[in-house]
Amino acid sequence: MNNAIEIRGLVKNYPAFKLGPLDLTVPRGAIYGLIGPNGAGKTTAIDLIFGMGKTDGGEIRVLGLNHQRAEVQIKQRAAYVSPDLNFMVWGKVGKAIRFVRGFYPNWDDAYCATLMKAFGLSDTDKIATLSFGAKMKLSLLLALARRPEILILDEPTTGLDPVSKQQVFAELLKAVEDGERTVLISSHSLSDIERFADHVGMIKNGKLLLEGRMDEVVDRFRMAEFFSENKTPFHNRDGFIVLKRNENRWHALVDQKTSGQDWLQTRGAENISLTRLTLEDLFVALVKEEEVK
């Protein structure tokens, strides 16, 4: 079992939205960044892993287990973190921790105390009065202290200040330190994802746009600037997306595998300059392209 999570042909239909067929592969021991514009289906996909909603097709395997048949087993081994989790009804931080702690034999009290201190969460703090970021940290603490094999985080950094954000990622890196644990994180803060995640999957409109090792994905694409006197203009094609055009001067996103420098030259492009992209640039370019279509 080299993959922590395998999603194959997952389909979920809503009146106004269709997820999938979606394939995702999260390798074991990795931090996997799931990115996509709002409404792409990230939360839906994550919810389905935890059995919140019924799939309309396809399969989800977590640690080799079928997500429907081994629901409780999976939940024993995988933890979920999201700002949507509501612990307010527990009143105090300590009570919420005590409740969750009872479910997990692996619960690490010492680590829990360390995290409480690191996150500034006292057991007597009232949850209703915690800031948004502190609530998020509580959710993260409850997930980390159970030492899960898989940690699934849905938008864990929304509303966190930069210091807290770095703290969160530092804990995540610590969590995967032994190479056995896996983190799946959906987030909009792409510079963080680029820095901390090993793998990346980008979804849009319920479909996977690209997936792979972070460095390979980012390296594959370039921002190209070139001039062309060619009468037949460049059109979008697989691996080539026109971003801007001013007369004979072009800006395009190119996939070096299919539409690199050589291809551009054969099409009569001159003065080609290729620039590296950040994940964020890549994201914006790919998402915009979809919208143009």
Binding site: Q166, A170, L173, D178, G179, F196
Partner: peptide
């Protein structure tokens, strides 16, 4: 590399590479 990744706050794959 996992240890160094944690120290430098970068992804494991970056250090591995």
């Amino acid at each position: 590399f996992r240890q160094l990744a944690e120290d430098l706050l970068v992804s494991v794959i970056t250090v591995k590479r």
